[in-house]
Amino acid sequence: MGRIVDLTNRALRRVAPSVLYVLAPLPAGWWLWQGFTGGLGAEPIRALEQRLGEAGLQLLIAVLAVTPLRRYLGLNLLRFRRALALVGFFYICLHLLAWLALDMNLLWGQIFADIARRPYITVGMLGFVLMVPLALTSSDRAIRRLGPAQWRRLHRLAYPAVLLGACHYLLLVKGWQWEPVIYLAATCVLLALRLETGAGGRRRSAQ
């Protein structure tokens, strides 16, 4: 096990994180192409919207997994975390855009009424809003300007943001379905691992 982790870590050291910015958006382009050409079935708008949202959630859950993977398995994906998070945010932006423009046809009256009155939309929107300052302060310059301690505190907003995203999914399905439950459970486990090691984490950051 340790050997596999070592080999993986060594191999990953040779991969530039910027590869993710090129590769990760490709599925979005492919789905859009399918949507244009009838490959997404009878309801391409809903299909596109769901795929974008699900991909965004998967990437953001992967971001939450980076720290536990390092702590418990020694797998070091830290260099990729920012790219994963920004691409995840990119998918959530596309998901939101698809909802606003394709699904809701920019019917702002109905859009604002839905944000205010439909819990799953309120929750999803709140998650998105929490991510905006994180995306805006993702550059090295922003980290320097804020200082590491303050930057770290601000970026704890990622925890509630992903949790809200997973709740958003659970709240929108009809009846009891597996997938949203699995995403929410994964998010909760990844967050709980942080609570458990919270004290140790703080000691390390103080060193």
Partner: peptide
């Protein structure tokens, strides 16, 4: 959980209007 004021016809593609 959602409005029933509008609907979308299936089969009208990516730019179907409500």
């Amino acid at each position: 959980r959602w409005s029933q004021a509008t609907e979308r016809r299936i089969g009208e593609g990516l730019f179907a209007r409500r």
